[in-house]
Structure formats: structure tokens, C-alpha cells
Design a binder for these strands. Structure first.
Lengths: 188, 188
DNA sequence: TTGACATGGTCCGATTCATACCATACTAAA
DNA sequence: TTTAGTATGGTATGAATCGGACCATGTCAA
């Protein structure tokens, strides 16, 4: 990704999407520990911006160093750090949100990559691929359905849920796509 | 991405998606220079597996070191390297193609990320975002249409084109999505 | 003959990745 | 009351990827 919409704080730190994601999440949830974020992310944001949890520990530190988050270490019980937005962090988040990106979605899909090279594949293997993908999408749609139930009806009319809604539409499109391939495998 | 479908050559080199992509492309096109690949990629593969061209120079080298590609340097005129698949490379490619990935598509979308955090945004800014995204998708669909024209009708029935077809469907879904948001902005 | 443009390639610091591992608390059976 | 299992919380790190700036060579037109 080119660096669309990268916003720089006064202190010159570079704010990538991951930084903004952390900022935004803390903004939505209020003061949070990295582990809180890790849990919160699992079935929401990570569907349209995947990244490993280890970044949830390093990134806030950077942000704190830049004065966008403040951190208070809890001494009782397990050691853990509670981060909250500073004025500056709040401003940076809002500034970022005011800058529409000049890019569209990016997708990475190994199965589609294989399809692209499927001239080297037997029809049988191609069908196997399509079937296995279809199965995975059915599973994913099932977990989406779970989530959807929780928000019955408000999906799509609520801003935060709208994001997930797009994910569902995409997954549906993919499911249809692979089912079609499985049913009528295109010739090489 | 977890390392689904990473295939390891006899020589123990790790083959990520990018490696397989290079292998596959050379398989499809025959002997190629990095620059050939760069050009070839522009309007096809990079839509479902984006990466910077600089990798097209480093990756083949790794692959050559592992014996999957052979390289012959052209001496006349501009210096350039012509890579071709070795037996071993061909086998690795086919092996990879026989292993369906256990993951589905991944999407990264900054605009959707912003939408997710749009509780901190005015309705006006949200509409601006939606409009700007819709415009970008219209442009992308236009370039897809160009490509589609070249393959009139065979789109979707030909394996390689099927991959692109999915990209188009996704882009259409996104366009509708953002147009809908622009027309009826959801409440926070 | 020069200088603009397309072609072809390299480099490198900064991010981001996957993943394995460490550590602390809680709980419930032995 | 040990202990062993499980969930919680966190760290470390080498490798892969990223974006882009920049270099170099050829070609063609004025």
C-alpha cells in the first residue's frame, strides 16, 4: 500500500494504518490494555485489516513515545499496561479520519492466485480447490451470521456494523464464485 | 497470512506466495526477465496479490540460488537477466498447485477502517469519504472494462480470466456499498 | 547533440509478519 | 495443599514485505 492518508503528528512520527487502528480502537473503547485490544479485534477489525497480535504490544509503545497515548502501568496483580488517548492522540485520530484515502481495497487471495495459474492443474484438482474454498467460505459466513444475530436488523444501518456488512457481501460473492467454478470448471 | 500452502523445495528453501507467483508467471510466459514480469503483472495478478516491483528482482535470485530457476545474463545491449524454470522449479510449481490453501481472501481497506471508526466523524465527512471511494471504484471498473473488452465474452469461461472476474465482482460490490452509504449515511 | 522519455534495474530503511516462547494467575481435582 | 491444566497477558526475533527514491542505458525527435 502506498502511504495514502498517512498523517504525521507534530512530533514527526509516521502514522500508518496500524497506528490509526490502535488509536481508533482505544478511542472507541476507552482506556485499554493491549490484551483488551487483542480480544476486541478478533471478530471485527481483523476482517478488513488483518495483522498479528504482537503488533498490539509494540505499536502502543511507539505511540506513547510520540505523545499520542499515555500509559499507566498497573502494579496490582498481573503486570499490564493501560493506555489511553491523549489530547494529541485524539487530534491525530480525528485528523486521520478527515483524510479520505486515495486507494481502494486490496485483496490477497492465494486460491485465486492458484486459479490464475490453473493451466498447470488438472480439472480434478481445480474442482478440489473450488470445493475446499467454498467450504471455507460457508464456515466464515456461519460465523458472520452469529455476529449478525447479535445486532439483529441494525446491521448496515449502524456505522460500525456497516463495515462488517461489506465483509459479508464479499464473502458471499466469493462463495458463489467458487461454487460456480466447482459446478462448471472453466477450460484452461 | 499464516503459512498455508507454503511448499518447501528439496533444498529447504521456503516458498511463500510471492515465490510461487514468480514461478507461475514464468511458467505461463516462458523465459522472462524481471522487467517482463513487471509489465505482465500490472493489470492482472497484482489485482489479487499486490506487491512492489522491487521484489521481482530479488525473488528470482533467491529462486535461482535454490535451483528452481536458471538464469542467463544477456551481454548484448542493456544488461538484463533472463530466467527460466528448471525441472525442479516446474515440479515445485505443480506441487504448490496441488495444495489447496486453508485460508480465504484477505482484504485490507483503509476506507472501511475509517468507516469503522466513523463515530468520530461528522456525517458530512462520512459522505465525502463515501463519494471519494465510489469515484475510485468507478475508475477501477472502467479499467477492468477495458481489459474485459480484450477478452470479449471469454471472461469467466477461461481459467485465467476467471480470476480477474472475481476482482470485478468485488469492485462492483464495493461501489454499490459506498454509493449506498453516500445516499443514506448510517447513524453513528 | 542534446535532452526528454521510456526502459530496465538496484538499494535500503522501515514496517509488518508469523510464530514460538515466557510468565502469571485462577481453579479444581488429587 | 500440591499440582496440573487452562486462560490470560506479554515478549522476542528473524524473515518477509513495503514503498519509493534513485541510477543507468537506450531511442528518437528536434
Amino acid at each position: 500500500m502506498s502511504n495514502h492518508a498517512a498523517v504525521s503528528a507534530q512530533s514527526d512520527i509516521r502514522l500508518g494504518p496500524v497506528s490509526c487502528l490502535v488509536l481508533g480502537l482505544i478511542g472507541l473503547r476507552g482506556p485499554s490494555t493491549p490484551y483488551d485490544l487483542k480480544k476486541a479485534i478478533g471478530r471485527s477489525v481483523s476482517y478488513f485489516w488483518p495483522f498479528p497480535h504482537s503488533q498490539l504490544y509494540g505499536e502502543p509503545e511507539r505511540l506513547e513515545a510520540a505523545g499520542l497515548l499515555s500509559c499507566q502501568t498497573e502494579s496490582s496483580g498481573r503486570r499490564r499496561k493501560l493506555y489511553k488517548l491523549t489530547k494529541k492522540g485524539d487530534a491525530a485520530l480525528k485528523k486521520w479520519l478527515k483524510t479520505p484515502p486515495d486507494t481502494v481495497f486490496e485483496m490477497r487471495d492465494i486460491a485465486v492466485l492458484q486459479l490464475f495459474f490453473s493451466e498447470f492443474m488438472s480439472e480434478e484438482d481445480l474442482v478440489r480447490l473450488a470445493l475446499s474454498q467454498a467450504k471455507l467460505y460457508r464456515e466464515r459466513l456461519a460465523t458472520y451470521a452469529e455476529i449478525e444475530k447479535t445486532y439483529a436488523g441494525r446491521m448496515g444501518r449502524n456505522r460500525r456494523m456497516a463495515s462488517l456488512y461489506l465483509g459479508i457481501r464479499m464473502a458471499k460473492a466469493c462463495l458463489e464464485f467458487w461454487e460456480d467454478i466447482a459446478a462448471r470448471p472453466p477450460s484452461p
